[in-house]
Amino acid sequence: MTTYIPSLTIPSGILLNPATSILLPVALGTAVGFSSRPRENQKNYMALKQPPCRPPPEIFGPLWTLFYGLMGYGAFRACNAGLSPLRSPNVIQATKHGATLYTIQLGLNLLWMPLFFVAKRPIEATVDILALTGTVGYMTYLWGKVDAVAGWCMVPYLGWLCYASYLSTAVGYLNNWDLSDKTVDSPPSSKPGHTKFVDEKP
């Protein structure tokens, strides 16, 4: 059972406002993406040995924007419903616990890209995303009991994290947990717009 830790929790005033609650993760995620040099990331990503069922790089940006928006809206729904003085003390406490978990998971989320692409530390990045997935799973359970819509808002995000955990683990394993000095200037295909990867696994 987690605990409510005010010093590690986004202020409730932010989460109780729908606009700030949605825009906060979107803005932070966008900032981390740009600061991690996405073009260089794509060159690095295309040079890595890939597992089956990997997605094309261009879908990551739109999908993460969607997931960040959904998590922000889910946080607003949960806090708006669960922090009402009309709710029972147990519900209010569960909502606060979920808010602490939400803050922790957002930090773990924002840490993954710098770990994987900038620091090129696939082991640490995989540990991070596994911890992130577990945290989001428990948070979804807590907030789902407070507000069903809030719980469902987290479900697509949680499903993607399970898939992303597979990708992170598999890419690390296939590349011997070493991502250093692996880049290509363009997709290794003569077809325009093709996104074939180096040493792509069938």
Rank of each mutant, 00 (worst) to 15 (best):
K120S: 05
M71A: 10
G151Y: 02
P56G: 06
P202N: 15
V171Q: 13
L106A: 10
S168F: 01
E124H: 10
P62I: 09
K191N: 12
W177C: 13
M71Y: 07
A164L: 08
D147S: 13
A94M: 14
A78N: 02
C53L: 14
S35D: 05
V184I: 15
I59G: 09
P55E: 03
L158S: 06
M113N: 13
N176L: 03
Y102T: 08
K182R: 15
T9I: 13
R77N: 00
M46V: 05
D147G: 07
V91K: 13
F117E: 01
Y68F: 08
I14E: 02
L8K: 05
W160T: 03
P25W: 01
P62N: 07
L110W: 04
M154S: 10
A150V: 03
F197P: 14
T100I: 10
D199A: 12
R87M: 06
A47K: 01
D128H: 03
Q93F: 06
L23P: 05
H194V: 09
A31K: 01
A81W: 00
K196W: 12
I22C: 03
D178I: 03
G159W: 00
D199S: 14
L24I: 00
D199F: 10
L70C: 06
W143L: 05
A164E: 00
N109V: 09
I5A: 08
Q42G: 09
H194I: 10
L15Y: 06
H194Q: 15
L179N: 03
G69Y: 09
P114L: 09
P38H: 05
G159F: 02
R39T: 12
A99R: 11
V184K: 11
A31E: 01
P52L: 12
N41F: 15
A164V: 00
W160I: 01
R37Y: 03
R39W: 08
Q50H: 13
L167D: 02
N80L: 03
L108F: 09
P55Q: 06
